[in-house]
Design a protein around this nucleic acid. Sequence first.
DNA 1: GATGAATGAGTTTTCATTCAT
DNA 2: AATGAATGAAAACTCATTCAT
Lengths: 200, 200, 200, 200
Amino acid sequence: MMNEGKQKILEAARATIIEHGIQGTTLRGIAKKAGFSTGAIYHYYNSKEAILYDVMDEGLGEIRRIATVSIEDKKEAREIIQEIFDGMQDRLKKDAESRLQFYLAHEAMLGNVELQNKFKEKYEDWINRVEAIFVRAYGVERGPSTRAVAAWTMAAIDGMVLQTLLNVQVVESEHTNRILEYLLQDGFTHFFKIIGNEQR
Amino acid sequence: MMNEGKQKILEAARATIIEHGIQGTTLRGIAKKAGFSTGAIYHYYNSKEAILYDVMDEGLGEIRRIATVSIEDKKEAREIIQEIFDGMQDRLKKDAESRLQFYLAHEAMLGNVELQNKFKEKYEDWINRVEAIFVRAYGVERGPSTRAVAAWTMAAIDGMVLQTLLNVQVVESEHTNRILEYLLQDGFTHFFKIIGNEQR
Amino acid sequence: MMNEGKQKILEAARATIIEHGIQGTTLRGIAKKAGFSTGAIYHYYNSKEAILYDVMDEGLGEIRRIATVSIEDKKEAREIIQEIFDGMQDRLKKDAESRLQFYLAHEAMLGNVELQNKFKEKYEDWINRVEAIFVRAYGVERGPSTRAVAAWTMAAIDGMVLQTLLNVQVVESEHTNRILEYLLQDGFTHFFKIIGNEQR
Amino acid sequence: MMNEGKQKILEAARATIIEHGIQGTTLRGIAKKAGFSTGAIYHYYNSKEAILYDVMDEGLGEIRRIATVSIEDKKEAREIIQEIFDGMQDRLKKDAESRLQFYLAHEAMLGNVELQNKFKEKYEDWINRVEAIFVRAYGVERGPSTRAVAAWTMAAIDGMVLQTLLNVQVVESEHTNRILEYLLQDGFTHFFKIIGNEQR
DNA sequence: GATGAATGAGTTTTCATTCAT
DNA sequence: AATGAATGAAAACTCATTCAT
């Protein structure tokens, strides 16, 4: 079926991009990895660009799936925090996907508006989830400040992923993890207390 | 002089990269923007790669200059913190340079080991500065934890810059700035207290 | 039946050629327009060339049908001339068919000998008819000169059709039609008189 | 110089088109015939289409030059007519150029508006010349009718060229030439007399 | 018979690099 | 030093034709 071939091509394209970067990704390479002839690719996609677009699309979809912590869960604060931590840990490990993300970010910066919108969507979704968790876990009221804290949290994770991908091992992950744990358990509690007071 | 031509070429290359991305950067384009003929470029550089290498080199050097807060300064904690904040604000605004940074990061991820080392150097430098400031400003003892906090701080800034470059305006900068200010003034104070206790 | 499918394909091919030219005509395009799958085409024709050949064959066949004035008709000169005039008018209007003709002519010029022979046949047929009509209508004797006049007449019609297809509207058709009418009624009469005298 | 290369390419393109038709013309072929590498072509032209466009442009320009009979000439009627006749003869012989013309006509029919305009221009120019000559040679007054006769004259020439290019040798050129001569000497004289009378 | 996915040779196009002037 | 025309290998893309289902 059409979709099966598309899937193969997308998978091959994703793998090639991660391996060689977008510049190093040629149709020939994708075709070879997908087990197709060059021409066959054009049954599924009209241009290289179209393939890359779909890779981006799926790549960002993937991210959404990574956000495993559901807003609807009825769990204890402690438990939720553990899940966030695990989710973050998880993301720090998924090299390949993260790398793809940064490639896409790169592309988006080049002025690909559609991709920028996808990123906006994704960030909004993710920040919403984080905010909702904060609200329930720390008993704080939703407001611009909780949203901003959520945005900073996302930012910190992204930045740490970047450091990891860059092989910048300035600090042992053991320590960065402990800081994260402290933050989630006590840091935010105190933090939201301060913010809560200041807001009034 | 040799260096004058090199500088022109580098400037043109940087501008072209920011405008069209690394893929979209051709020698011809650089030559045109620099006001040289295609052939003339080869008097200054032996290959396109050599130019890109220097762009990266200078690009990352630039970052170091952005870190205006010197370790040796003998200022009040309050003042130092304000400087950090301003420095961060500043970086959030320098679109072009930041963009170049992310392109380079992209390239480094592709396995460019030399570039990775440059990034490592840069991060170590910067994290050192931030850590030193924390030590002085919050009166905490230097240790793996302060280093980890510094790394997370850097990560958060990087992540926020990324969101800015992606045009993801999920939260008004007014609010993210306030959170940053709170963090620097009260958050870290409390934070280092907890960590200090836990560390024992 | 085989022929039904062939007819559909031929019709689709003709339409596609008129729309996109011979270069722009792809098997896929023909198949789609004919409502067949790409592969199905090969049940009717062994190659694209075979299809084009049949299009040419039918295309030129069509022209023969356009020559409605039969040699055997026993009509008055006046009446015959009117018929010629109407036939020419007709041809000037049949854009699509004429266009196809010129495409085929184009192809024939490229050295397609078979097609050249078809054209020769067609012209011979047509010139014969026109000559026969001249003989009867103007009472002139058949000879190299009458044949040459017939050839020129055909040429003039072809050339005027070309001007029409090229959207060259240098002269209003009202005037070109009047000239044609004069020619048929008086011009040729006088003309053949002169030629008749000179021939002796 | 730039133009020298362009000229070589154009010449090679024209020759290739005449030899193989527009479809059979590949960049590789042009490059080879012009004595360039494939890549070199792109110094002069940004696309194959651009080359073809210039070929067309020059091709139609050529035609204008073929129209050697100048409107301003102060010659005897007899002499002028001879010139027309020679010019026509000439055109009937210039196989290559005429062939190119028909290729261009073909292209124009496909909807190339720019090319259509060029053709219009060319026909207007030519018909103007022929009309002017008629006016002087036959002492007839300029009007829609003389213009229409000029258009028909052009059409007849075009059509006869077409027959020649198609290798349709239905009539020996000896006879067609004689008819043309008669036409120019007596035919038109009588013809314009009739038309002149009718017009009143 | 019919389908449409697959082939692969051929086409246009790009671009870092070279080199005669 | 400087020019920019030229190179050629490699890229994206097209399409008539084949073939397993």
